[in-house]
Design a binder for these strands. Structure first.
Lengths: 185, 185
DNA sequence: TAGATATTTCAGAAATTACCGAAAGCAGGA
DNA sequence: TCCTGCTTTCGGTAATTTCTGAAATATCTA
């Protein structure tokens, strides 16, 4: 597939950014390519376009499937697998959030729980330190619980909630004026 | 400072996790140490405890200050700088969120905006591809705007909002039963 | 101002992570 | 069953990131 300059720049930037999002560069570029292409592409065409090894594409596709960001499809008369990107951005964001929670929050929670259960066997730790570990565990757990509650909301409800957020910000915090413009940092 | 087994495990796990959070391992360990210590520590004591080079501590502390996760303090009769961790977890989470937005969202938005402005000079790109770029830009911009609106809410309002989230989930989505237990994956 | 201690900077070493290409593994069709 | 086209795995290499130790800088005391 031939990329126009803007498309190329889109793909390259996604690659850059992807690495800050927990995807690696190639994985992110492949997603970007599929997103911008808007049609199913086979692995070899992806490799051609991005100038990376086929094997690398294969691995990356595997990862994208784990994130559920792309889907396998088939074309009649072609037994190669083709892949399309998830184009609904709410879904995309949700998938990324889900995977990141799984990688970033859940293991932390587990580790903290283990710390708390080991506390009784540790006579070298102070009461206050234990309290701080407990506080962190509790905090993460409630954040995690909240996330799980809203995770499955349909998009429309989520939008409602976001509007409510804005309202809460404006009505219930009279000390702050509602902003008309974004503040600079 | 002597670490008890549980404290050590806490610090090590934070180190592991920190790297998934955008901090590097040492930076995260230092934060964890300061958090668990619950009192100001000087740089050399940190280096001793974690067995890392003093210079490394210096660099990491600089980064933690950029994240605003620690603060410099002084003890009378000691001219060394001491450092304490931010112990309020809401604040901690907010700081991490802020920095991540700055690193992950803002540059992406800028790149997308650049793509859109370059579109007129690119005759090789299709209308639908442009529409997809525009969609992504719009999505990120509104998410970013929402974040900015709730960012400055005091903790109490945020908690209100979270409760509202739960309510919206339960009352307005009658198709889904409210869960009593977490699902397994 | 000298002398001592504390802190930062920086170039290279060490460790981690991503990538490639060769070869093995797996299906569907003859 | 074998053949054919594709996918996956794996060992080695390249690139990137993190860490260190030495030197430079800054700050306090006398």
């Amino acid at each position: 597939m031939e990329l126009s300059p803007v498309m190329e720049s889109f793909v390259l930037h996604w690659g850059e950014m992807g690495s800050r999002w927990g995807l690696n560069r190639t994985v992110a570029q492949i997603y970007a390519l599929l997103y911008i292409a808007g049609r199913p592409l086979p692995a070899d065409e992806i490799a051609d376009t991005l100038k990376v090894a086929r094997s690398n594409v294969s691995t990356s596709i595997r990862e994208l499937q784990a994130w559920e960001l792309i889907e396998r499809t088939h074309e009649i008369g072609d037994r190669r697998d083709h892949f399309v990107a998830e184009t609904d951005l709410w879904t995309m964001a949700a998938r990324i959030a889900e995977e990141r929670k799984r990688r970033e929050i859940d293991p932390t929670l587990a580790a903290l729980a283990r710390c708390l259960s080991d506390v009784r066997m540790d006579d070298g730790i102070g009461k206050d330190a234990v309290a701080r570990i407990r506080a962190m565990h509790g905090f993460l757990e409630s954040a995690s619980g909240w996330y799980e509650e809203i995770r499955d909301l349909p998009q429309s409800k989520l939008e409602t909630l976001m509007k409510m957020g804005a309202k809460v910000a404006r009505l219930e915090a009279p000390g702050k004026k509602p902003k008309k413009k974004k503040g600079k940092r």
